[in-house]
Amino acid sequence: MSLVLRFQIQLSYGRAIFAPGTSSEQPNSNPHFRGLRVILTDDDDVNRTVTKKLLEKLGCEVTAVSSGFECLSALSSAENSFRLVVLDLQMPEMDGFEVAKRIRKFCSRNWPLIIALTASAEDNIWERCLQMGMNGVIRKPVLLQGMADELRRVLQRAGEGL
């Protein structure tokens, strides 16, 4: 019986400190975004890995690439029907603004949806993104809630009835 008592102490110890922490208790995906096909473009390995996982947690099917060129070529191959592009603005060679401009030129005004990722705190970022035909902006570091909110807002605006 003494063993069982100790066991209970341990349980409460763990719960008291880390109640929300256990990964298996987290919802695996958000039904709103389940199956949403996303292409993520970020040249930074760490950020790309984390953002990809965040999107997957929300239920998205994510393809991750590390440059604007890769993003454009993935979009242009016919069998890939991405609904959303998540795009880091600050990339070497071709930055996010340039990628968005080309997407709007070669694809269409409302397909695919584009959400920018930026660490910049500048006020005019949102305006510049709009001018380039982007649909949303997320500030880094990206948080699960912030990502979910912006995805929902952008999809709602696009009339995809969430």
């Binding site: 929300p20 922490g21 990964s23 298996s24 987290q26 695996n28 984390v50 996982k53 965040l54 947690k57 570091p141 948080l143 699960l144």
Partner: peptide, 10 residues
């Protein structure tokens, strides 16, 4: 942010 990282692990 490190907590968030750990919560993403599954």
């Amino acid at each position: 942010q490190f907590n968030q990282l750990q919560q993403l692990q599954d």
